[in-house]
Computed example of a mutant assay.
Amino acid sequence: MVRIGNLELGDFPLLLAPMEDVSDPPFRAVCKANGADLMYTEFIAAEGLIRHADKSVQKLDIYDYERPIGIQIFGAEIEPMREAAAIAEAANPELIDINYGCPVKKVACKGAGAGILLDIPKMQAMTAEIVKRVNLPVTVKTRLGWDHDTIKIVEVAKRLQDAGIQALTIHGRTRQQMYKGEADWSWIAEVKNHPDIRIPIFGNGDIDSPQKAVDYWKRFGTDGVMIGRAAIGYPWIFREIKHYIATGELLPPPGLQERVDTVKEHLRFSVEWKGEKQGICEMRTHYTNYFRGIPNFKPYRVRLVTSESYEEIRTTLDEISSVFSDAYSLA
């Protein structure tokens, strides 16, 4: 049984990655319904929380249907991060997660996210202060290093464990790699198998099928896996992995009607959360992924992304159900 503090997550938990502009409550809802064991919010800027910026505060929204969930924060300075952790704790998640892995320039080059990998003592000090500030378990998500020449992930893991974190997720790429190339899980395994490491270690990077999830589990021995991009437009990956672990068999991909039904649920949650206008707008990035692989779909995609009426979109989705065959579903 994998545990983070008093939180029990099963023998091989599947975590939904915190993805900016993706991992909002509506998306988390459909992933939870399909078997994700632990959710994370989109990463939230410490400075935004302290200033009570509307966009940052709204990211604190969590719902009982998606528990257990962690709120992820990021920042470059210790005191704002301590304050932000306390604000996040007041939103009543199960844990607080620190982002030490975001590679985008506007974050990393200011010393936040993966940028703090260039100052490991500061990373340890910041983590220790956050652990002292809150009563919830604190976890971290990070990368292997800033670049290939600065990979010190074993040292980082030991220092973060000493600072008091209760689980660590490692993305198997450096900041320099961004999202290119293949994730190197051998470093993740080195951390997991180190005799001084006592906390759960979760692997992240390139898990896009049940076979790969099980293969990496057996080869690298992590306590669980975090799934990000592979879940976008395909929340069924969580149930497919769980079924494969339990039976050794692959589930068939979801049929067209199930895709449509899931899109309707996702849309409903989005409209309920943000209101009709904004909820519809934020769903537009998801349609291509949900219906990828269906030939001659462009006219319907255009209708979905240009419609401004909730009922009109639902009508289009019903038409998609009647026009297209399950044979066109993504395999």
Score class of each variant (00 low, 15 high):
Met283Trp: 02
Met226Gln: 15
Glu8His: 11
Leu15Val: 15
Gly203Glu: 06
Asn34Trp: 10
Asp64Phe: 02
Phe220Trp: 12
Phe324Lys: 10
Leu9Val: 11
Ile78Asn: 04
Ala86Ile: 15
Lys152Val: 00
Val2Leu: 07
Ile44Trp: 07
Gln257Lys: 12
Gly172Ser: 08
Asp149Arg: 12
Phe238Ile: 10
Ala108Phe: 04
Leu304Asp: 13
Ala231Cys: 09
Ala230Ile: 07
Pro195His: 11
Leu60Tyr: 07
Ala327Phe: 11
Tyr216Asp: 12
Ile50Val: 15
Tyr328Trp: 10
Asp196Val: 01
Asn34Tyr: 15
Gly48Trp: 02
Glu265Gly: 07
Asp149Cys: 02
Pro195Glu: 08
Arg133Glu: 14
Ile71Ser: 01
Arg159Leu: 09
Arg82Gln: 06
Val104His: 06
Gly293Asp: 10
Ala45Gly: 15
Pro25Asn: 05
Glu319Gln: 14
Leu304Pro: 09
Thr315His: 13
Tyr310Gln: 06
Gly248Met: 03
Ala90Met: 06
Phe238Ala: 08
Met123Ser: 11
Thr150Ser: 15
Arg82His: 00
Arg219Tyr: 02
Arg219Thr: 15
Tyr179Asn: 10
Lys152Tyr: 04
Glu258Pro: 02
Arg143Ile: 02
Glu272Thr: 05
Thr247Lys: 08
Glu240Trp: 06
Met126Ala: 14
Val57Ala: 05
Leu16Val: 07
Ala331Val: 10
Arg67His: 14
Thr315Ile: 12
Arg143Pro: 04
Val260Ile: 14
Lys158Asp: 00
Ile241Tyr: 10
Arg67Gly: 05
Ile62Tyr: 03
Glu258Val: 05
Val214Glu: 14
Asp119Trp: 03
Tyr100Arg: 00
Lys55Ala: 12
Met19Leu: 15
Arg159Ile: 00
Gly181Lys: 13
Ile151Arg: 08
Glu129Ile: 01
Ile116Ala: 00
Glu155Leu: 06
Ile197Met: 07
Asn289Leu: 07
Glu311Cys: 04
Pro210Gln: 01
Ile69Asn: 02
Pro26Glu: 01
Asn193Ile: 05
Asp61Trp: 04
Leu256Gln: 04
Gly111Ile: 08
Asp326Gln: 06
